[in-house]
Design a protein around this nucleic acid. Structure first.
Length: 239
DNA sequence: GCGACAG
DNA sequence: ATCTTGTCGC
């Protein structure tokens, strides 16, 4: 699948990162979507490892039939990670591998689910939102831990599958603490882009089974990156 | 110096 | 994210 050429690479420092975020932020469109038109969905994740003092990563995108959750396609990419992890700038670290993998897709997913936040971000520009500008598709953010913004804590949702509490910061809904399994900590859902929160919620819940608290596409991508890491670890170490 | 900190 | 064994709870 073809990705949009949004320049974000070869940037110098966090000041330029913020400039890019501000520029893209103004183009965010949390529009309503027609869920009945969703046929295929995708999960995106990255795993890391160290070798000779350098950091490497493997990205996996797993494409599923939205209705049957049958796996339709898997693509990956791997390589040296050049950008350090800094909370708030995850996209600049992970996007190169994500784009490389997305370019290998023969299918065009109707929606992408990311391991990380979207609109629930200091600058509304978490990885799910930022990625949408390359993919030109609706995206959803699924984080496993809470990113606190302006010292606002989230309210723990009821202990029932599907229960949630909205995360409101300065009067604006940023995302949702969502219970996808009973007796399991909630996940943190937010719009990526080109989609509304209610649709994001329904899509995420439609992709939950009793195997994981994560939506199936994200969970499968997570598992896949671990397999890829074992494979590439040996290949890079052998050289 | 200390705490915060998506992945 | 990753390093890692046992162990508490349903």
């Amino acid at each position: 699948m073809k990705t949009e050429n949004v320049h974000i690479f070869n940037l110098n420092g966090e000041d330029e990162f913020v400039q890019i975020q501000n520029k893209l932020k103004s183009k965010i469109d949390l529009c309503n979507i027609d869920e009945s038109k969703i046929r295929i969905c995708a999960g995106v994740d990255i795993a890391y490892w160290e070798d000779a003092g350098e950091t490497f990563g493997a990205c996996s995108i797993v494409v599923l039939d939205y209705n049957t959750t049958e796996v339709l396609e898997k693509v990956f990419s791997s390589g040296k990670i050049e950008v350090p992890y800094v909370a708030g700038f995850l996209a600049f670290r992970e996007l190169p591998l994500i784009i490389e993998a997305a370019e290998k897709l023969s299918l065009e997913p109707d929606v992408f689910l990311f391991d990380g936040n979207g609109y629930l971000h200091y600058n509304h520009m978490g990885i799910a939102t930022h990625s949408s500008f390359f993919l030109n598709k609706p995206t959803i953010g699924i984080a496993k831990s809470y990113l606190k913004i302006n010292r606002v804590e989230f309210k723990m949702p009821a202990n029932e599958v599907g229960a949630y509490t909205d995360i409101v910061i300065d009067g604006e809904i940023y995302g949702r603490a969502l219970r996808t399994q009973k007796n399991v900590k909630p996940i943190f859902l937010s719009c990526g882009n080109y989609i509304d929160l209610e649709s994001s919620y329904r899509i995420a819940m439609n992709l939950i089974n009793n195997k994981s608290k994560l939506p199936i596409p994200v969970r499968l991508a997570d598992l896949e990156t671990h397999i890829l890491r074992e494979r590439f670890k040996e290949e890079t170490a052998a050289q």
